[in-house]
Computed example of a mutant assay.
Amino acid sequence: MQTITNTATRYGWATIVLHWLIGIIFIGQFMLGFVMVRTQSQRTAFELIQLHKSLGFLLLGLVILRIAWRLGNPAPLLPSSVGALERRSAPLAHLALYVFQLALPLSGWVLVSVSTLEIPSMPFNLFVMPNLPLPESDAAESFWASAHWYLAYAGIGLVALHVCAALRHHFLLRDSVLTRMITPSSAGE
Protein backbone atom coordinates (compact mmCIF):
# COMPACT_ATOMS: atom_id res chain seq x y z
CA MET A 1 0.00 0.00 0.00
CA GLN A 2 1.40 3.38 -1.00
CA THR A 3 1.68 6.09 1.65
CA ILE A 4 1.18 9.82 1.72
CA THR A 5 4.36 10.42 3.73
CA ASN A 6 8.02 9.94 2.83
CA THR A 7 10.01 6.91 3.90
CA ALA A 8 13.76 6.46 4.25
CA THR A 9 14.03 5.40 0.59
CA ARG A 10 11.12 7.02 -1.32
CA TYR A 11 8.88 10.06 -1.42
CA GLY A 12 5.22 9.77 -0.49
CA TRP A 13 2.19 10.85 -2.52
CA ALA A 14 1.97 14.32 -0.96
CA THR A 15 5.56 15.22 -1.83
CA ILE A 16 5.29 13.79 -5.34
CA VAL A 17 2.05 15.61 -6.16
CA LEU A 18 3.32 18.92 -4.77
CA HIS A 19 6.68 18.54 -6.56
CA TRP A 20 5.17 17.94 -10.00
CA LEU A 21 2.32 20.43 -9.60
CA ILE A 22 4.71 23.19 -8.53
CA GLY A 23 7.13 22.26 -11.33
CA ILE A 24 4.43 22.40 -13.99
CA ILE A 25 3.05 25.71 -12.72
CA PHE A 26 6.55 27.21 -12.35
CA ILE A 27 7.54 26.32 -15.91
CA GLY A 28 4.08 27.29 -17.20
CA GLN A 29 4.36 30.66 -15.49
CA PHE A 30 7.67 31.31 -17.22
CA MET A 31 6.15 30.49 -20.62
CA LEU A 32 2.99 32.51 -19.86
CA GLY A 33 5.07 35.49 -18.76
CA PHE A 34 7.13 35.25 -21.92
CA VAL A 35 3.99 35.22 -24.11
CA MET A 36 1.95 37.84 -22.23
CA VAL A 37 4.56 40.60 -22.59
CA ARG A 38 4.81 39.94 -26.34
CA THR A 39 1.08 39.83 -27.09
CA GLN A 40 -0.11 42.66 -29.34
CA SER A 41 -3.76 42.62 -28.27
CA GLN A 42 -4.22 44.69 -25.08
CA ARG A 43 -7.31 42.71 -24.11
CA THR A 44 -5.53 39.36 -24.52
CA ALA A 45 -2.45 40.69 -22.72
CA PHE A 46 -4.63 41.90 -19.82
CA GLU A 47 -6.34 38.50 -19.54
CA LEU A 48 -2.99 36.68 -19.66
CA ILE A 49 -1.58 39.00 -16.98
CA GLN A 50 -4.57 38.26 -14.75
CA LEU A 51 -4.07 34.52 -15.29
CA HIS A 52 -0.35 34.94 -14.58
CA LYS A 53 -1.14 36.72 -11.30
CA SER A 54 -3.70 34.05 -10.35
CA LEU A 55 -1.24 31.25 -10.97
CA GLY A 56 1.44 33.21 -9.13
CA PHE A 57 -0.70 33.38 -5.98
CA LEU A 58 -1.52 29.68 -6.34
CA LEU A 59 2.18 28.90 -6.75
CA LEU A 60 3.05 30.92 -3.66
CA GLY A 61 0.50 29.00 -1.59
CA LEU A 62 1.64 25.62 -2.93
CA VAL A 63 5.32 26.40 -2.28
CA ILE A 64 4.55 27.44 1.30
CA LEU A 65 2.60 24.19 1.72
CA ARG A 66 5.47 22.22 0.14
CA ILE A 67 8.03 23.77 2.50
CA ALA A 68 5.82 23.11 5.54
CA TRP A 69 5.33 19.50 4.38
CA ARG A 70 9.08 19.11 3.81
CA LEU A 71 9.85 20.35 7.32
CA GLY A 72 7.64 17.61 8.76
CA ASN A 73 8.60 14.89 6.26
CA PRO A 74 12.36 14.54 5.78
CA ALA A 75 13.54 13.66 2.30
CA PRO A 76 14.63 10.07 1.68
CA LEU A 77 18.31 9.35 2.07
CA LEU A 78 20.37 9.62 -1.09
CA PRO A 79 21.51 6.33 -2.62
CA SER A 80 24.95 5.13 -1.52
CA SER A 81 26.25 5.73 -5.04
CA VAL A 82 25.94 9.51 -4.60
CA GLY A 83 29.32 11.10 -3.89
CA ALA A 84 30.28 13.37 -1.01
CA LEU A 85 30.29 16.61 -3.04
CA GLU A 86 26.82 15.95 -4.38
CA ARG A 87 25.57 15.05 -0.90
CA ARG A 88 26.67 18.49 0.29
CA SER A 89 25.48 20.42 -2.77
CA ALA A 90 22.05 18.79 -3.24
CA PRO A 91 20.49 20.39 -0.13
CA LEU A 92 21.85 23.79 -1.21
CA ALA A 93 20.40 23.34 -4.70
CA HIS A 94 17.00 22.43 -3.26
CA LEU A 95 17.15 25.41 -0.90
CA ALA A 96 17.91 27.66 -3.89
CA LEU A 97 14.88 26.23 -5.74
CA TYR A 98 12.64 26.95 -2.73
CA VAL A 99 14.01 30.49 -2.43
CA PHE A 100 13.35 31.23 -6.11
CA GLN A 101 9.90 29.61 -5.98
CA LEU A 102 9.05 31.97 -3.11
CA ALA A 103 10.87 35.03 -4.42
CA LEU A 104 9.26 34.99 -7.86
CA PRO A 105 5.59 35.17 -6.82
CA LEU A 106 6.47 37.53 -3.96
CA SER A 107 8.30 39.87 -6.34
CA GLY A 108 5.27 39.75 -8.65
CA TRP A 109 2.99 40.63 -5.73
CA VAL A 110 5.29 43.52 -4.82
CA LEU A 111 5.28 44.62 -8.47
CA VAL A 112 1.48 44.85 -8.67
CA SER A 113 1.39 46.46 -5.22
CA VAL A 114 3.72 49.33 -6.15
CA SER A 115 2.21 49.85 -9.62
CA THR A 116 0.67 53.25 -10.22
CA LEU A 117 -1.93 51.60 -12.48
CA GLU A 118 -3.78 50.29 -9.41
CA ILE A 119 -5.26 47.30 -11.23
CA PRO A 120 -6.64 44.89 -8.61
CA SER A 121 -5.45 41.30 -8.50
CA MET A 122 -8.36 38.86 -8.54
CA PRO A 123 -7.06 35.29 -8.31
CA PHE A 124 -9.20 33.21 -10.66
CA ASN A 125 -11.90 35.93 -10.36
CA LEU A 126 -12.78 34.64 -6.89
CA PHE A 127 -11.75 37.55 -4.65
CA VAL A 128 -9.62 40.68 -4.60
CA MET A 129 -6.13 39.98 -3.28
CA PRO A 130 -5.05 43.01 -1.27
CA ASN A 131 -1.88 44.75 -2.30
CA LEU A 132 1.07 44.75 0.03
CA PRO A 133 1.28 48.00 2.03
CA LEU A 134 3.99 49.61 -0.10
CA PRO A 135 4.17 53.08 -1.65
CA GLU A 136 3.29 53.28 -5.33
CA SER A 137 5.74 54.85 -7.75
CA ASP A 138 6.96 54.49 -11.30
CA ALA A 139 10.52 53.99 -10.05
CA ALA A 140 9.49 51.17 -7.70
CA GLU A 141 7.41 49.55 -10.42
CA SER A 142 10.35 49.67 -12.83
CA PHE A 143 12.71 48.20 -10.22
CA TRP A 144 10.37 45.35 -9.30
CA ALA A 145 9.55 44.60 -12.94
CA SER A 146 13.28 44.15 -13.58
CA ALA A 147 13.76 42.13 -10.40
CA HIS A 148 10.85 39.85 -11.34
CA TRP A 149 12.30 39.38 -14.83
CA TYR A 150 15.81 38.51 -13.55
CA LEU A 151 14.42 36.18 -10.89
CA ALA A 152 12.33 34.41 -13.55
CA TYR A 153 15.32 33.73 -15.79
CA ALA A 154 17.54 32.68 -12.88
CA GLY A 155 14.74 30.46 -11.56
CA ILE A 156 14.18 28.75 -14.88
CA GLY A 157 17.95 28.23 -15.11
CA LEU A 158 17.87 26.48 -11.73
CA VAL A 159 14.95 24.33 -12.86
CA ALA A 160 16.91 23.37 -15.99
CA LEU A 161 19.88 22.33 -13.82
CA HIS A 162 17.52 20.37 -11.56
CA VAL A 163 16.06 18.52 -14.55
CA CYS A 164 19.55 17.81 -15.94
CA ALA A 165 20.67 16.45 -12.57
CA ALA A 166 17.62 14.18 -12.37
CA LEU A 167 18.22 12.90 -15.91
CA ARG A 168 21.91 12.34 -15.10
CA HIS A 169 20.93 10.22 -12.12
CA HIS A 170 18.46 8.23 -14.16
CA PHE A 171 20.33 7.66 -17.41
CA LEU A 172 24.03 7.92 -16.51
CA LEU A 173 24.24 6.87 -12.86
CA ARG A 174 21.20 4.57 -13.12
CA ASP A 175 20.20 5.13 -9.50
CA SER A 176 16.79 5.70 -7.89
CA VAL A 177 16.92 9.50 -7.44
CA LEU A 178 14.41 10.23 -10.24
CA THR A 179 12.19 7.16 -9.91
CA ARG A 180 11.52 7.77 -6.23
CA MET A 181 9.95 11.13 -7.20
CA ILE A 182 7.66 9.26 -9.60
CA THR A 183 6.72 6.10 -7.72
CA PRO A 184 5.48 6.73 -4.15
CA SER A 185 6.61 4.99 -1.02
CA SER A 186 4.86 1.89 0.26
CA ALA A 187 3.94 1.01 3.81
CA GLY A 188 6.78 -0.90 5.47
CA GLU A 189 9.55 0.63 3.29
Score class of each variant (00 low, 15 high):
Gly188Phe: 13
Leu173His: 12
Leu151Trp: 12
Leu106Thr: 05
Asn125Val: 12
Cys164Gln: 13
Asp138Met: 09
Thr7Cys: 10
Leu48Glu: 08
Leu58Arg: 02
Val163Leu: 15
Ser113His: 02
Val17Lys: 04
Phe100Met: 09
Ser121Glu: 13
Gly23Lys: 00
Pro79Ile: 00
Phe57Cys: 11
Ile4Phe: 14
Leu71His: 01
Leu132Pro: 03
His148Lys: 14
Ser89Asn: 10
Leu32Cys: 08
Val114Trp: 01
Tyr98Gly: 04
Ile24Cys: 08
Ala187Arg: 13
Lys53Tyr: 12
Ile67Leu: 07
Phe57Ala: 07
Ile182Met: 15
Phe46Gln: 11
His170Glu: 06
Pro120Ser: 07
Leu102Tyr: 03
Ala90Gln: 07
Thr44Ala: 10
Phe127Ala: 12
Leu58Lys: 02
Arg38Thr: 01
Ser115Thr: 14
Asp138Thr: 08
Leu85Arg: 13
Ser41Ile: 05
Ile119Lys: 09
His148Leu: 06
Ser80Pro: 14
Asn131Tyr: 02
Leu85Met: 08
Tyr150Ser: 15
Leu158Tyr: 09
Phe57Val: 14
Leu18His: 06
Ala154Val: 13
Phe46Ser: 11
Leu59Arg: 07
Ala68Trp: 11
His162Met: 15
Glu141Leu: 01
Leu151Gly: 15
Ile67Gln: 06
Pro123Lys: 07
Trp109Met: 08
Leu92Phe: 09
Gln2Met: 13
Pro79Gly: 00
Val114Gly: 09
Met1Leu: 08
Ile67Lys: 05
Leu21Arg: 01
Leu32Pro: 01
Pro135Val: 01
Leu102Gly: 02
Arg88Val: 09
Glu136Ala: 07
Ser185Gly: 15
Pro79Thr: 00
Glu86His: 11
Gly23Ser: 05
Leu158Phe: 15
Cys164Met: 15
Ile67Asp: 01
Ala165Pro: 12
Leu62Ile: 09
Glu189Ser: 06
Pro184Thr: 10
Gln50Ser: 14
Ser41Gly: 02
Arg10Phe: 06
Ser142Glu: 12
Ser113Leu: 07
